[in-house]
Design a protein around this nucleic acid. Structure first.
Length: 450
RNA sequence: GGCCUUAUCGUCUAUCGGUUAGGACAUUGCCUUUUCAAGGCAAGAAGCCGGGUUCGACUCCCGGUAAGGUCACCA
């Protein structure tokens, strides 16, 4: 295989800016990037913007932003734009006309907008065989393609012609694209031969699929197909890269968490799967959580503070205490934003309004039980110096009393009076985070309810 | 419909003729000083079907079946 690879590998990523950056496309870009980085080649960026009606600069920006966000470090400064190469296409069309590999064809106009004259390729109608790095040898009979159209006029090339010319002009040696490109390849090879362009090496990647195994589509998955959605939801780019890479590829080891560098190092295009992979949201969430856990503390702190500060005011000390607890409970920073909005973590910052019925442990029936236990807790806590208000210390002091009273009967009321919620961190954690004064105040409020 | 491609736990996958078919996500159960979360441990869960080839097939070949893709004066 290696001897088939030329000295200098040039691959390309050629999106058409007619929609928001699709995650399937992002994966294609990533695989191209891995491949070129691994083999010391270059990846070139090209905008296929010949469709003037559908192409928008905001889409192009979205694609570039997304690529940069993912960490694809290539040259974006002056992308090759199809719209700027009209003369080049014209030149090749003229060459083809001259060497008789193409001809001007009179057409019957059936629909509005159709040309009476178009340029068609003179199809030799042979079988074309080519090597695909993922699928092996592919053979296609091009006869059924007929003399397909390559341009509407001298100045209006059709996609296939434009692609072949662009790849030739850009010196592309390797084309790694989606599996739908398989059907374009024979046409493009025919055009290459007509203009005497060398044939690049191909690799066609399988799709990322919907639950029903159809091609991942906006219609079925909505905004979930846009890379920018994940960015807005606070997913980490590293998680996205890792997840997308493992859609249809894996290093063949048990290692799942891999950095960009490791991915590049281990990437092997021959190991890319031939069949499509269903987009697994849960696994993505898992990846993201793994990456959140690996975040440096100051980054984590910054991210959490950004969400928290929208609603609460707090001391730096409190923030530090809360980081671990919040981190354990979220998969994405978008979730944190949602939790903040819903008041999930209100109890760290605001005194709750506990409900009487919630304060009592489910096995107890008489409200005097939690009341007496809480009274007892107040008495114990009041004697603990502020400096000793650590989780471990509190546990060692309160646990004997809780065991005597019945753990649930005492621990549950403490927790609920501090958090006001059915679900929250354990009482000792809460106590130590809130501190002596605030804890005492909350417990007394609860006692007054009973 | 023609053509092309694909086919291992629910999902992503390992295996490249001989394995108790491995891992991860998800699920379920247990433990972690009785709510959550996190963590730990454990369990259940797969070779589409039918023929060959072979001493031996998930692995190779053929045929079904199923799924997907593709058949533009779009890119």
């Amino acid at each position: 295989m290696s001897e088939d690879i030329p000295q200098k590998i040039v691959a390309r990523f050629p999106p058409s800016p007619t929609g928001w950056f699709h995650i399937g496309n992002a994966r294609t870009a990533l695989f191209n990037y891995f491949f070129t980085k691994k083999n010391g080649g270059v990846l070139k960026f090209r905008l296929e913007d010949t469709d003037k009606e559908r192409s928008k600069s905001e889409y192009a920006d979205d694609i570039v932003d997304g690529l940069k966000w993912l960490g694809v470090q290539i040259d974006y400064s002056s992308p090759y734009k199809q719209s700027e190469h009209g003369d080049t296409y014209k030149k090749y069309i003229e060459i083809m006309l001259k060497n008789n590999t193409a001809y001007v064809s009179k057409e019957e106009v059936k629909e509005e907008g159709q040309r009476a004259e178009v340029i068609r390729l003179r199809n030799p109608g042979k079988k074309i065989k080519y090597q695909d790095m993922i699928r092996g040898e592919i053979e296609v009979d091009t006869t059924e393609l007929g003399d397909f159209i390559i341009a509407k006029s001298l100045t209006e090339p059709i996609y296939h012609l434009a692609v072949v010319v662009d790849d030739f002009e850009m010196g592309v040696t390797h084309i790694i694209r989606g599996e739908d490109g398989i059907y374009n390849t024979p046409r493009q090879i025919l055009i290459q031969e007509a203009i005497s362009a060398p044939r690049p090496v191909y690799a066609h990647m399988p799709f990322i699929l919907n639950e029903d195994r159809s091609k991942l589509s906006k219609r079925k998955q909505g905004e979930l197909v846009s890379l920018s959605y994940y960015r807005k939801q606070g997913y980490l780019p590293e998680a996205m890269v890792n997840f997308l890479s493992f859609c249809g590829w894996n290093p063949g080891t048990d290692q799942e968490i891999m950095s960009m560098d490791e991915l590049i190092e281990n990437f092997d295009i021959m190991k890319v799967q031939k069949s499509g992979a269903i987009f697994n949201k849960e696994k993505l969430l898992w990846f993201n959580k793994e990456y959140i856990k690996r975040l440096p503390l100051d980054t984590l702190k910054k991210e959490i503070a950004e969400k928290l500060s929208k609603k609460y005011s707090y001391t730096d000390e409190l923030l530090n205490k809360v980081i671990t607890i919040i981190t354990e409970r979220i998969n994405t920073f978008g979730e944190l934003e949602k939790y903040v909005a819903e008041g999930e973590f209100d109890y760290f910052f605001l005194a709750p309004v506990p409900v009487k019925e919630m304060i009592i442990w489910k096995k107890d029936t008489d409200f005097s039980i939690p009341k007496n236990n809480l009274l007892n807790v107040v008495k114990i806590i009041e004697n603990i110096p502020d400096a000793d208000f650590s989780e471990e210390r509190l546990k060692s002091i309160l646990m004997p009393a809780a065991e005597a009273a019945g753990k649930g009967s005492m621990l549950w009321p403490i927790r609920v009076s501090l958090s006001g919620k059915e679900k929250s961190p354990d009482p000792f954690t809460l106590l130590s985070i809130l501190g002596k004064t605030e804890s005492l105040s909350r417990i007394k409020t609860a006692i007054n309810l009973l």
